[in-house]
Amino acid sequence: MENERLSLPNYNIPEDLKDVVAITTLDRLYNWGRRSSLWPLTFGLACCAIEMIAAQMARYDMSRFGMEVMRPTPRQADMILISGTVTKKMLPVIIRLYNQMPEPKYVVAMGACASGGGPFKEGYNVVAGIDKFLPVDVYIPGCPPTPQALIAGLIKLQEKIDKDSLKKVRWYNKEKKDGNYVPMPILGPDLIDVRRNAEIRDIAAAKTTQESA
């Protein structure tokens, strides 16, 4: 247990007890536990996923930061790394995975594609950024981000977790049960975000016919 991180600096603990006793807040203890064992979902989409694998290998070794335990099932994962281009055909699968993850859960958008469509944004089968559907905690720029950049981004996520407070976090909020549930989009003539159904119907009705090529 890293004492200096856990203990609050304003308590004067005698020198000989420093390794045995820590005085801290519940928030700090809670955040320290979570930030030090972030388990990512084994989930790769495209080229960025290869750099994600490289980051786990000996040279970069993500496990130094407590995030190497990749879980193949979403039910055991704490965070989903969107590592690559999100396509319309794949999106419902990603949303389903996300909905299956238990709280607390985090989303990291790795690379240009996941953050905003990247080089393929204009494509007809590409979703311009996962943040159109999921709440993203950290964006990592790059195409692909180097393993160093990925690790830097994940450390950013740890810093974000450090600032959480038990009182405020959404998963203990009683009113907003399942507040993070994302309804499944459907694959129709194009990808349809069901949260926008009414709006889409109105715009489609207002379309002039020659536009609807």
Binding site: K88, P189, D190, I192, I200, T208, E211, S212
Partner: peptide, 20 residues
């Protein structure tokens, strides 16, 4: 017009659409 990467035919109604 849809403010998204979206191209739907005129008078399309998402609620009536039957998913494959």
């Amino acid at each position: 017009p849809f403010h998204d990467n979206l191209n739907l035919p005129k008078d399309f109604d998402p609620e009536k659409y039957v998913v494959d």
